[in-house]
Computed example of a mutant assay.
Amino acid sequence: MKKLLLILLAITATFSVNAQIATPQPSPFSKLEQKVGLTDVTLEYSRPSMRDRVIFGNLVPYGKLWRLGANANTKITFSTDVTIGGNTLKAGSYAIYATPNETSWNVVFYTDASNGGTPKEWDESKVAARVTAELYPLPVKIETFTMTFDDLTSGSAVLGMMWESIYVGVKIEVPTDEMVLTSINDVMNGTPTGNDYYAAAVYYLEEGKDIKQAKEWVDKAISMAGDKVAFWQLRKQSLIYAKAGDKKGAIAAAKKSLAAAEKAGNADYVKMNQDSLKEWGSM
């Protein structure tokens, strides 16, 4: 009898293990990874859906702290210090909470990111940043709560939040310029390569910095490349010359880039160079 009981228990245990049913989560987990300038930003959150419910002012009440999603609190992680609403947030992880209102949201970045939802006891000393974000109506319904990284630049991004028929955005600024300039200074004080000169020149062009310095660096890069210079490098050289007011030099570099792009069969660069040459009165 005892042996039979043991056998039955073993069979029951085996059935229990094998009988586990996997079903979809009603608010599935999502993880976004975004490079903003030189900063890695990771967002982790759960995504509830409307399911014929009225969301704001009902499921999510106005004037009440919300976990910004479902399940565990929404978490954002930065690889460098960032700036939000004039506040510096150190590299690390933060919970994000919001208090929705009819015309705006109060969005909070909270240093304790380990809460299951909203904190049981709110600690104001853990508020790293608080931002009032304007609400924008959307022309379509967003069935599932969605967070995005929008309006990306080398120095910032907008953390977007959409659900039902509204969009809210919070700007995040990253220290790209400071980091790049430090890197450029360090490299230029050492033994820079042709690629270093080219990268520094392009950064100065695109960020509106000292164009004469950019011209000097791009010339050095082109000289070091010799007969291996690429059409895209010549293209940037032409744009730097144009911005520096050297139209003749810009045209000469653009013609070289055009010829090299035609030889390489790159239609995009052929068109860009042709458009610039027409703009500069050379075609």
Rank of each mutant, 00 (worst) to 15 (best):
A250E: 04
G86I: 01
I251P: 08
P26W: 11
A19D: 08
K141S: 14
T80H: 11
L68I: 03
L258G: 03
L181N: 12
N185S: 14
Y241C: 07
T74I: 00
T118V: 05
Q25S: 15
K248V: 09
S46C: 11
V82A: 02
S114F: 07
E262R: 07
K120T: 09
K248P: 11
E216F: 14
V17I: 03
Q34H: 04
D246N: 08
S165I: 02
T14Y: 14
K220F: 06
L181H: 15
A242K: 14
L59S: 07
T111S: 13
Y167V: 02
K141D: 12
N273W: 05
T176I: 08
E33S: 13
A199H: 13
E44F: 06
N189P: 04
E216Y: 15
K228M: 12
S79H: 06
I222W: 08
V17W: 12
F78L: 02
A267T: 07
G117D: 07
T148N: 09
T99G: 05
N189L: 06
L89C: 01
V168P: 00
F231D: 00
L152I: 09
S16H: 14
E279M: 14
A254L: 09
R47M: 01
V180F: 08
W280R: 05
L138A: 08
L258T: 03
Q20H: 13
Y167H: 03
P175N: 07
Y269G: 05
A254S: 05
K209C: 03
K271F: 12
T80K: 09
I184G: 07
Q233G: 10
A98M: 04
M283H: 13
N87S: 11
A200I: 12
Y167D: 06
Y198A: 06
N266I: 00
L5P: 06
T42M: 09
I222Y: 10
A113I: 04
D40T: 03
V41T: 01
Q25A: 15
K64G: 01
W217K: 05
D52N: 15
V170C: 00
E206T: 05
K228P: 05
S276I: 12
F56Q: 02
G245K: 10
A113L: 05
A199M: 12
N189E: 11
K236W: 15
A260K: 13
K212E: 14
R53W: 05
G116T: 03
A242W: 13
K126V: 01
Y110Q: 02
K215L: 13
V82Q: 03
T83C: 11
G281N: 11
I76A: 00
R53Y: 04
M162W: 08
L43T: 00
T88K: 14
A260N: 09
E178T: 08
K126H: 02
Y269Q: 01
A261S: 05
D196P: 10
E173K: 13
S104K: 15
Y110L: 00
K35D: 12
W217R: 04
I142V: 11
S46W: 14
